[in-house]
Amino acid sequence: MIASAHPAHLLVVDDNKVNRMMLSRNLGLQGHIVETAENGEEGLEKIRSGTFDLVLLDIDMPVMNGYEVLEACLKDVELRQIPIIMTSAMDELDAVVKCVELGAEDYLTKPVNPILLRARVNASLEKKRLRDEQRKLFRTFATKEVAEELLRTGFSLGGKQVTASVLFADIRSFTTIAESQDPTETIDLLNEYFSLMFDAITDNGGTVNQMVGDGLLAMFGAPIYFKDHGEKAVRAALQMLERLKEFNQRQIARGKTPLHIGIGIASGNMIVGYTGTQNRAIYTCIGDTVNLASRIEEYTKEALRPLLIDNYTREGLPDDIRVEDLGRIVFKGKHQAVNVFAVVAG
C-alpha cells in the first residue's frame, strides 16, 4: 500500500482491542501517526490535550459513548475544527445517522475495509486542510468574528437589521503630517497607530471593520450581538485615547509630531452584511446610525473634545462613565437636531 501524501496525527477511540489494532495498523500502513484511547472519556481527554488532525470514534463504548464525545467536541470552538469519523457496526446505522446529523464528518462500518478507510480519512483530511487554509486567509483579510461567521453561514451578499454601536476615529490634520515626512515613515506611523487602536477595540469586543486612509470604523454588537455594545464602544474609545497618550509620549521622545484623534460613537438600528460584488465584497454596516457616528466624529473638531457620543449610546452607560451634555446639534443632511454628549472620564 502506498503511504499517504500527507501524514497526519490521528486518534483511534475504541473499547475493542481488535478494532484498535486493526485501525491503527491500517492507518499506520497508510503513513499516519496513530494514537489510541480505550473509552470515550480517555478519548476526549486525549483530544483536548493533543493536536490531532482527525479522530476515528467508536459509538458503542462504556464510560462515555461516542455520541457524548462527539457532542462535547462540537460544543468546543477549538475542538469543533477536528473532523470526526464515526466507526460502528453495520447494524448501528440509526446511531450513525444521529451522529452525522449532529456534525460528524463521516462514518465507517466495521470490519473496516482498508480501501474505504483510506478514502474517507484522506477526504476528511483534505477537507480540513482546505477549511484551515480558508480560515487563515479569512483571518488575514477579515476580522476573526467575520471569518467565523463566514465559515458558519457561508457567503452571500445582502444584509440584516441589527441594533449595535458604531465607532469612527480619525487622525486630526493627518495630511499635514503626511506631507512633512517621507511616505515610508508615514506608513510605519499608521501601522503603529492602527495596531494600538485595534488592540483597544478588540479587547472590548469590537470589530474593526474598515480602515480608510487614517480613519477607521469599528462595530460593537455585530456580527456577534452583545447587549452592552454602547458601553463597550465607549470603553474601547477611552482606551484608544489612553494608548494614544502613551504613543504620543514616545513620539515626542523620538522628536516626532504627536497625533490627535477624534472619536464619534452612535448606537441604534443599522443594516449589516456584505456589500460589493460576488468577486469582491466587504462586511460592513450602513444606515442612519452609521451616518450619525461619522457626523459626530467630524463634530469633535468643532467641539474641541476627543470623544463624542449620541444619546442612545449615553443611555446604556453605567454611572462610572461621566458625560457632559453639549446640547442639541443639527448636522449636515439631517433634519432633526441630535443631542450630543462628550465623555469626560471613565
Binding site: K17, V18, M21, M22, R25, L29, P114
Partner: peptide, 17 residues
Amino acid sequence: ATGAEFISELVHAFLED
C-alpha cells in the same frame, strides 16, 4: 492488507479476548 506478522498478533489478541 495488513501482513502475516500483524495477523498473527491480531489472532492472538482475538483468541485471548
